[in-house]
């Protein structure tokens, strides 16, 4: 428990402004919009913005650590480091998504078009996990945080720009199928692919992080 507390305390606090600022911005937009337009902004935050922030934070999560060399000199395994950092980032994403949904609930905005409560959580959780895994793997593969952030941002942007094509031709690998087409029959397969892809990227990250000398 105390290790968790220190994981939190040693995390770069300045990066927390990033998700908080977006949360405040989108909550503000939802508040000032007319009721008919609120749903689209609400799902845009949950389905697009939360995953992007997760991907970028994850790119910085492991390597942006001033005591990295000391950490590597301890018996802590690569898997434990990844788990702690990914857990922290997913927690930040979950808290942001939860606060936003509470705000939406207070305003009477109905998210049921996205599915039941579990489906709504999967709308943000799976793309966040996928982009976070990609951000981490990219940062570790390039031994630079900016590479991971760029990779996560680029994939996010390309998927967003090519959403019509992806929806027609590559639904299993489409990050935003759950938020754009919640009733699509390919959604179960899409969820499996996103989860499986995330696990594969995390395995790659684990293998890369074992080669500690690359990051000094």
């Amino acid at each position: 428990m105390k290790g968790l507390k220190y994981s939190w305390l040693s995390y770069r606090r300045d990066q927390l402004w990033f998700p908080l600022a977006f949360l405040a911005l989108f909550a503000g937009i939802v508040l000032i919009l007319r009721p008919g337009a609120r749903f689209n902004i609400a799902r845009a935050y949950l389905g697009f913005i939360v995953p992007l922030i997760g991907g970028i934070l994850a790119a910085y999560g492991v390597l942006d650590d001033p005591a990295l060399e000391l950490r590597f000199s301890t018996p802590v395994r690569a898997g434990q480091i990844l788990r702690a950092r990914l857990g922290l980032i997913l927690s930040v994403s979950a808290i942001s998504a939860a606060i936003f949904q509470i705000v939406l609930g207070g305003l009477g905005i109905d998210l049921s078009p996205l599915g039941n409560l579990l489906a709504v959580q999967l709308v943000w959780l799976l793309p966040t996990l996928a982009l976070a895994s990609l951000g981490m793997a990219g940062a570790l593969a390039g031994a630079q945080t900016a590479i991971g952030a760029f990779l996560a941002g680029a994939v996010w942007l390309i998927q967003l720009m090519m959403n019509s094509w992806l929806r027609a031709n590559a639904r299993p690998a489409f990050l935003f199928l759950g938020v754009i087409a919640p009733g699509d029959p390919a959604l179960p397969l899409n969820r499996c692919v996103l989860f499986g892809g995330s696990v594969a990227l995390l395995m790659i990250s684990w293998a890369l992080l074992r080669r500690t000398e690359r990051y000094l």
């Binding site: 105390k2 290790g3 220190y6 305390l9 001033p66 005591a67 990295l68 060399e69 000391l70 018996p75």
Partner: peptide, 25 residues
């Protein structure tokens, strides 16, 4: 191990930092 370029968490107190390293060890 005391590395040449010693990085620490500036927001932690000395006791917290040493305690954290003890947990990691």
């Amino acid at each position: 191990y005391l590395p040449q370029e010693l990085g620490m968490y500036p927001e932690l107190t000395a006791a917290q930092f040493v305690d954290y390293m003890a947990i990691l060890k």
